[in-house]
């Protein structure tokens, strides 16, 4: 197997007496969808937040494309190509779809200090934005305000914004949350396309989606990795069945 694009080693994070991340190591390889599953409170979101630089780990190290990124802040990590979507849809509510994606294009390029040129007449922004909007399946909704979108459309907008970062890794935090059956199906199709752009670290509760999409799965319980393996390995793992899948049934 080739070198991992994202490599986490010995990550630890405690909040007081609670150990949210307990010596977690994890690799994400090019071209794969790696799902991170675990019961509520297992520390999945805390782990994502440490990867994107929103909270600092107490110990351990994160390498991205072979370079240690522990000292970079969130904005710098995003510009390097760590694209994140949020557990609860997070877009700029008063902006149109087009403005949201243009913002991501501008941010990714690191050129936000331009004061006098109207962003809407800047083909360097509108051109790429149009492409990403089409890619995420939102053509025709460019001028709608983000706050007026349906839940599913907002998810798609997040994906368009993530694409605009020309990511080297997608970090998707529960993209299926709150989606209906039909929406989840659509999104599963979009995500399996997305893997061609960049590997995905997927935090997800929807087991159908996880088993349909993931190449490998890591199971987190109480901040600890209890198993890592392929879909069939994880399905067969007695520890996982007992501590996680069993609970669901």
């Amino acid at each position: 197997m080739s070198d991992p694009i994202l490599s986490i080693r010995g990550l630890k994070k405690s909040f007081g007496a609670l150990t949210a991340t307990d010596d977690v190591s994890l690799d994400l390889y090019p071209g794969e969808i790696h799902a991170l599953i675990g019961p509520n409170g297992a520390g999945k979101s805390t782990l994502i937040k440490q990867i994107v630089g929103e909270i600092r780990p107490d110990a351990g190290s994160i390498a991205f494309e072979g370079q240690v990124i522990d000292r970079l802040d969130g904005a710098a990590r995003a510009r390097r190509g760590l694209a994140r979507s949020f557990q609860v849809s997070s877009v700029i509510p008063d902006f149109t779809v087009q403005q949201n994606v243009m913002l991501a294009v501008a941010g990714a390029g690191g050129h936000v200090f331009r004061f006098l040129r109207p962003a809407l007449s800047d083909p360097g922004l509108t051109g790429p934005a149009q492409g990403y909007i089409a890619h995420a399946g939102l053509t025709g909704r460019e001028q709608s305000k983000a706050s007026a979108l349906s839940h599913g459309e907002r998810r798609k907008l997040e994906i368009a914004m993530a694409l605009a970062l020309r990511p080297k890794v997608f970090l998707l935090d529960e993209p299926m949350a709150g989606m209906g059956l039909e929406g989840a199906k659509q999104l599963t199709a979009i995500l399996s396309e997305l893997r061609r752009e960049a590997p995905i670290l997927l935090v997800e509760h929807d087991m159908d989606a996880v088993f349909a999409l993931a190449d490998r799965i890591t199971v987190l319980v109480y901040g600890r990795v209890i198993a890592t393996g392929t879909v069939s390995e994880i399905r067969a793992n007695p520890l996982v069945r007992q501590s996680y899948l069993g609970e669901e049934a």
């Binding site: 997070s90 902006f95 913002l103 501008a106 990714a108 200090f113 040129r117 962003a119």
Partner: peptide
Amino acid sequence: LVTQSRFGLALQSIRQNPQRATAVGIR
């Protein structure tokens, strides 16, 4: 002009959703 520019987009996005602005690479 400033509020319609790239800078204006960045500024208004930070007001509405700073976490999101960071996630697209804006300090």
